[in-house]
């Protein structure tokens, strides 16, 4: 499985990478929404899933998801939102922008992996 993970915090990026790579999941990282799109466009094959933070400079997580979903070729990629908020309206916003699901930070590594496996159908 290959996952594109987007977060402006180096700490969170490192943690996501560590968590995923321990499970044998290949991880590609990006710093913010704009960078995420650049990285996504530059990948030779689509990632199996995308993880994105919400609060980021330049382009936030919702903006990123909307931009991704506008492109038919990316329409099917599952996108999970990593958010520190558990408020329901945040989830609704995530949903409205086209997110597949959400994970609350600080994330439970096992739960993140299970969620990724669920949305990608990959082991």
């Amino acid at each position: 499985m290959r996952v594109l993970a987007i977060d402006d915090s180096r700490t969170i990026r490192d943690m996501v990478r560590l968590t995923l790579e321990r499970e044998g999941i290949e991880t590609v990282l990006a710093d913010d929404g704009i960078h995420g799109i650049e990285v996504l466009d530059g990948m030779d094959t689509h990632p199996d899933a995308i993880l994105t933070d919400v609060n980021m400079p330049r382009l936030d997580g919702f903006g990123f998801i909307e931009r991704v979903r506008q492109q038919p070729e990316y329409a099917g990629i599952p996108i999970l939102v990593l958010t520190t908020e558990s408020a329901r309206d945040l989830k609704l916003r995530a949903r409205a922008s086209g997110a597949t699901g959400w994970i609350v930070k600080p994330f439970d590594p096992a739960r993140l992996v299970v969620a990724l496996r669920t949305v990608t159908g990959l082991a």
């Binding site: 790579e21 960078h35 650049e38 689509h46 990632p47």
Partner: peptide
Amino acid sequence: ERGDVAPPETAAPATVAAPSGP
């Protein structure tokens, strides 16, 4: 099975350098 999702990767995990990284 859908066609628009990349087939499962079997290759060893590796961190791919972001093409237009910082």
